[in-house]
Design a binder for these strands. Structure first.
Lengths: 195, 195
DNA sequence: GTCGTCTCTCACCCATACGTAAGGGTTGTC
DNA sequence: GACAACCCTTACGTATGGGTGAGAGACGAC
């Protein structure tokens, strides 16, 4: 969907879970216990609240709005943005799509497509198409990472042998020395040597 | 190693395999059949050759050299860069590290560390440390993608129900309509609705 | 009213990994 | 020697996903 969604640089890991210790006071007799981050559908959030609950920054949320991915339900008298609980759902959804490898531009396209289509099954089938493609590429991605995982493990095993090496040995003699005789070094190891 | 190696945008898939149909002429009696992309260790490559064989662009290779990740073995009279087969190994190695989520800056650090250390086992143990960390984060990454994969599959299953829907039905009535009654929509689906 | 904490809207800044164009030599093949 | 195809260096451009103020107003508790 982007011009070049693939090519190098995989992400590494995401925080995804801000640690907040504030659970609902036990035994509260309030209308809804509001498990963790959930909120009553009538709750009103300012951008800062939305940011905290979604783990994004205020700036990010503004950006999403600029891109048309999100709209406040209303504004206060003083022009403060006022969001409902659905905005939180939306922001989390955006985050998930980003995790899937969609750029904000991609998400923009998805949203526009959704908003412009009037026939429900038509829209749904387009969305399915997007998700189907993403499912395929996600699986491909998993395959690639799994291959890299194996290579890493191999390389680590290979490098273990070096522990027994003479500490005075020079690096120049390394990477494919006599200690690990028969096997050729894995690519992740032989890359060191080349200039 | 980068300031912020995680955070969103996973990659999608990499080509990794340029399709080139030129296998070695069968039955050749040459010193080495040169399986696919391999070459005799004495072969000389210009940047364009190196680029083609590694799947990178000439510009990328120049960049790697600027960053100190790569050095030509020599120059021709006319200042053309001349690489050996090890350069190909090196470029592929760079690509793999990028796939693992290392930035070029990270790789720079790795290379410098390698080149500066004199004690072989010391250098090796540092490299092992890098690889160990990457192995961990790669596994984490795989876990996350696998979770997303499951979510995608769920969402697709949920959306299948929409096929039987009345084509005239409005999108506004959608995302959580009566056809798929009991289950709440997955987050990847409920995100459509929120404004 | 007044303080502290949000929030508002510009508007420019950052890093990454190259792309791309300019202007000009080099190689090697016919 | 002429030509295509390749290479050289320099240098600015590009897309992404926000970060980071600045200057000014809003909210709410006391």
């Amino acid at each position: 969907m982007s011009h070049d969604p693939f090519h190098h640089h995989l992400p590494i890991a995401a925080p995804l879970a801000g640690h907040r210790g504030d659970a609902a006071p036990s035994g509260a007799v309030l209308p809804e216990p509001l498990a963790d981050g959930e909120l009553g559908s009538d709750e009103v959030l300012q951008v800062g609240d939305l940011a905290k609950r979604s783990g994004k920054t205020v700036r990010a949320i503004h950006l999403y709005e600029e891109l048309g991915l999100l709209r406040p339900n209303a504004r206060s008298k003083g022009r403060f943005r006022l969001f409902g609980g659905d905005a939180l759902v939306r922001v989390r959804w955006i985050g998930k799509l980003q995790d899937l490898g969609l750029s904000l531009g991609d998400i923009q396209a998805v949203v526009r497509e959704w908003e412009q289509s009037s026939s429900a099954p038509g829209a749904m089938s387009k969305m399915r198409e997007v998700y189907r493609q993403k499912l395929a590429s996600t699986r491909e991605q998993i395959r690639r990472l799994t291959a890299l995982e194996a290579e890493l493990a191999d390389s680590l095993a290979y490098l273990e042998t070096c522990d027994v090496c003479d500490p005075a040995r020079l690096v120049s003699a390394c990477t494919c020395c006599d200690r690990h005789e028969p096997q050729a070094p894995p690519e992740l190891v032989s890359g060191f040597r080349a200039s």
